[in-house]
Design a protein around this nucleic acid. Structure first.
Length: 288
DNA sequence: AAAGCGTGGCG
DNA sequence: TCGCCAAGCTT
């Protein structure tokens, strides 16, 4: 196994973006909120929303005291609004089970709503400086190329954690930087579509490059078409509920002109099932 | 364990 | 233009 740490860390010190959550005083709550928002939403769209969110709810207990509806409205157009609901639930759990303090222990973090393998370790490492493998989609791609010689990573699995553990530096502080650096390299240089190998600090060690950049295929399922989908209908309903005057809308009027009435009903029913909407007395609203 | 879940920018 | 993609999670 080549020693990736030295060149990767050196590259990171020169090239890392100055992102809000990388400032030492940002705090565990800020890191946790940022990680929720960054689950499938690009950095550039997260930053302004994150600052608004933390100004309004500077602690988990502050958010726990708000209604889920307020959380979903504040989430605005970040996408996947269930994340807003989950973040709110996590805040309630942190208040009730952890005295309002974001836990440091990975198992405790994993037990919170909406937190999985990536987010739990990201909080433990980036907020508390502990030593764990942090593996996101960028890191998986970097490892797939540099170590496995593949053009794209396979489906995500627990094995990714073992792979990252095997290359993680022993020192705690160094390991935290290494985790961040692998993600950053994947985001800025070792990108999915057009990697900038001429700027890559790992080029000399890269198994994919050594093999002549073979196209080994992409194991990930293709994202379904959005136009005309149920997801689009859900998004349209939720937008109405977020912006509803008096915070509720007549059930009959929601998406009345939608081309597919069945799809409209499916969207409303599934939003209710997900806890993102409530139907009361012929009105539809966000969950109080 | 594979499918489902928003939104908008970019090549 | 339009398909691809973006710091994943839950069921």
């Amino acid at each position: 196994m080549p020693d990736l740490a030295a060149p990767l860390i050196a590259w990171y010190r020169e090239n890392a973006r100055d992102l809000p959550w990388r400032h030492p005083q940002f705090g565990a709550w800020g890191v946790l909120v940022s990680e929720f928002m960054l689950q499938q939403t690009p950095v550039g769209r997260v930053i302004p929303r994150l600052e608004e969110w933390l100004a309004r709810w500077p602690t988990p207990t502050a958010l726990a005291g708000a209604s889920p509806a307020d959380a979903v409205r504040q989430w605005a157009n970040l996408g996947y609004p269930r994340r807003a609901l989950w973040l709110h639930r996590a805040a309630v759990e942190i208040r009730d089970r952890h005295h309002g303090v974001v836990p440091r222990d990975v198992e405790a973090l994993l037990a919170l709503t909406g937190i999985g393998d990536y987010t739990a370790r990201a909080v433990a490492v980036f907020a508390y400086g502990d030593r764990h493998p942090v593996v996101d989609t960028n890191t998986r791609r970097v490892l797939a190329r540099a170590i496995d010689g593949r053009s794209q990573p396979g489906a995500a699995s627990r094995r990714d954690l073992a792979t990252m553990s095997a290359v993680l530096p022993t020192g705690t502080a160094e390991s935290a930087v290494f985790n961040a650096a692998a993600m950053e390299l994947g985001a800025l240089v070792c990108t999915a579509r057009s990697p900038a190998c001429e700027r890559c600090p790992l080029a000399a060690h890269c198994a994919w490059r050594a093999a002549g950049f073979p196209d080994t295929g992409d194991a990930r399922p293709r994202q379904a078409r959005y136009e005309g989908s149920d997801r689009q209908a859900r998004g349209a309903v939720l937008k109405i509920l977020r912006e509803a005057d008096g915070h509720e809308a007549a059930l009959d009027g929601v998406l009345a002109g939608w081309p597919d009435a069945r799809q409209r009903d499916r969207a409303i029913d599934s939003l209710i099932a997900d806890g993102l909407a409530e139907a009361i007395d012929g009105m539809l609203r966000l969950p109080r």
